Amino acid sequence: MSTPTARGSRAENAPAIQTRGLTKRFGRTTAVKDLSLEVRPGEVFGFLGPNGAGKSTKIRMLLGFIRPSSGTARVFSDDARDVRRAHRHLAYVPADVALWPALTGAEILELLARVGPGSDTTYRDELVDRFELELGKRGKAYSTGNRQKVALVAAFSTRAPLLVLDEPTSGLDPLMEREFRRCVAEARDRGQTVFLSSHQLAEVEAVCDRVAILRAGHLAEVASIPELRRLRRTDVEVSFDGVAPDVSGLPGIHDVELLDGTGMRFSLTGPPGPALRVLAASDVTAFQMREPSLEEIFLDYYGDAVR
């Protein structure tokens, strides 16, 4: 969960996360292969991939819980293998939160606040109310969702320059997911970096500045949400009077389908200019373009294996 924070000049000037050729092998299985990426200070960075893609392995190496087979991982210039130094810069929320069973929620939050000198107790109390967290219960009595809330309140109330969140909303209901998104935005506004590992695509699409897509241990793409969308198709549907516009054969046009003689549907990749010029010369009565969701982009990368 939350750990102490230190914001020195090195932390402020260096990338929040930097990996170079990061590789982890378990016997003959390569969980992460030659992973190189850089997360800028102050951004919300999404790390996407289905179960088995290597997300958790990468995070465990970043946190120094396991050693890479080769390559390096750094947290604000500190080698991730030096856990004492690297953890001064970050707060961590695991996918499966374990709490001290005999301590109450209030005692757990107080303990974590004392471990990290950067904790904002006023903001922490506000988050307790917003997440509707019952502090009088002991850790062993908390549900999965409430354990997650304790970890999130502890992490967001620190002033650690880096928040590492691994599937942080898996036990939350939709209202609490909305609060989580607010907290991410507030962390960004304070200049904190958020590294969010998730398979909930709507969540990533809503809060992230950039996204990395991990496929079978390999980095498939790193881009902003708009950049990812531009890499993929746009679905176009038009209605017309008279002769159907002839867009077949134009660059970037795919899957042309006529609809009852008065409509047309097709997919467009790349610049829309050629298609728009043909449509403008026809008697088009209605025109609709739909950008793909992040989920559709994600499925394009993984194909039928994810479906």
Results as ranks from 00 to 15, higher is better:
residue 239 S to A: 14
residue 101 P to H: 05
residue 206 A to N: 05
residue 100 W to A: 13
residue 28 R to E: 15
residue 55 K to E: 05
residue 238 V to A: 04
residue 89 H to W: 08
residue 138 R to C: 09
residue 223 A to V: 09
residue 20 R to F: 14
residue 44 V to S: 02
residue 295 E to L: 06
residue 46 G to R: 00
residue 135 L to F: 11
residue 300 D to H: 13
residue 200 Q to L: 13
residue 233 R to F: 14
residue 131 F to H: 02
residue 222 V to M: 00
residue 147 R to L: 07
residue 80 A to Q: 04
residue 40 R to P: 07
residue 268 L to P: 06
residue 286 A to W: 11
residue 174 P to S: 03
residue 158 T to S: 02
residue 155 A to F: 04
residue 222 V to H: 03
residue 46 G to I: 10
residue 224 S to N: 09
residue 306 V to M: 13
residue 19 T to L: 06
residue 203 E to N: 03
residue 216 A to C: 11
residue 50 P to A: 02
residue 226 P to M: 10
residue 134 E to C: 10
residue 90 L to I: 12
residue 183 C to D: 11
residue 16 A to N: 04
residue 302 Y to A: 08
residue 289 M to I: 15
residue 30 T to L: 05
residue 56 S to N: 04
residue 20 R to V: 15
residue 264 M to G: 03
residue 216 A to D: 15
residue 122 T to S: 14
residue 303 G to M: 10
residue 294 L to I: 07
residue 26 F to S: 00
residue 45 F to R: 01
residue 161 P to K: 03
residue 297 I to F: 09
residue 141 A to Y: 11
residue 277 R to K: 14
residue 102 A to R: 13
residue 1 M to C: 12
residue 248 S to W: 11
residue 48 L to M: 03
residue 20 R to N: 14
residue 210 R to Y: 11
residue 257 E to V: 14
residue 211 V to S: 02
residue 278 V to N: 04
residue 250 L to Q: 04
residue 25 R to Y: 14
residue 143 S to H: 06
residue 53 A to D: 08
residue 198 S to A: 06
residue 81 R to C: 12
residue 242 G to V: 09
residue 256 V to S: 01
residue 161 P to N: 04
residue 145 G to C: 03
residue 200 Q to E: 13
residue 181 R to L: 12
residue 248 S to K: 09
residue 94 P to C: 05
residue 222 V to Q: 01
residue 63 L to Q: 01
residue 20 R to D: 15
residue 47 F to M: 05
residue 163 L to W: 05
residue 251 P to Y: 13
residue 210 R to K: 10
residue 29 T to V: 15
residue 205 E to P: 00
residue 217 G to N: 04
residue 1 M to K: 08
residue 125 D to Y: 08
residue 123 Y to W: 14
residue 284 V to S: 00
residue 144 T to H: 14
residue 37 L to S: 03
residue 284 V to M: 01
residue 212 A to E: 02
residue 74 R to S: 11
residue 76 F to A: 12
residue 120 D to V: 05
residue 208 C to K: 00
residue 24 K to L: 11
residue 182 R to C: 13
residue 9 S to M: 15
residue 130 R to F: 11
residue 238 V to W: 00
residue 146 N to C: 01
residue 253 I to P: 04
residue 240 F to E: 04
residue 249 G to I: 10
residue 304 D to E: 15
residue 263 G to K: 01
residue 264 M to R: 06
residue 298 F to D: 04
residue 95 A to P: 01
residue 219 L to Q: 01
residue 249 G to N: 02
residue 305 A to G: 10
residue 3 T to I: 10
residue 215 R to H: 14
residue 296 E to M: 06
residue 144 T to G: 06
residue 206 A to C: 05
residue 104 T to W: 06
residue 130 R to Q: 11
residue 130 R to W: 11
residue 220 A to D: 08
residue 307 R to W: 12
residue 210 R to N: 10
residue 20 R to P: 12
residue 207 V to D: 10
residue 305 A to I: 15
residue 30 T to V: 13
residue 4 P to V: 11
residue 83 V to C: 07
residue 276 L to G: 08
residue 249 G to Q: 01
residue 209 D to W: 10
residue 37 L to H: 03
residue 242 G to H: 02
residue 157 S to C: 06
residue 299 L to M: 13
residue 287 F to Y: 12
residue 307 R to I: 15
residue 271 P to K: 12
residue 93 V to S: 05
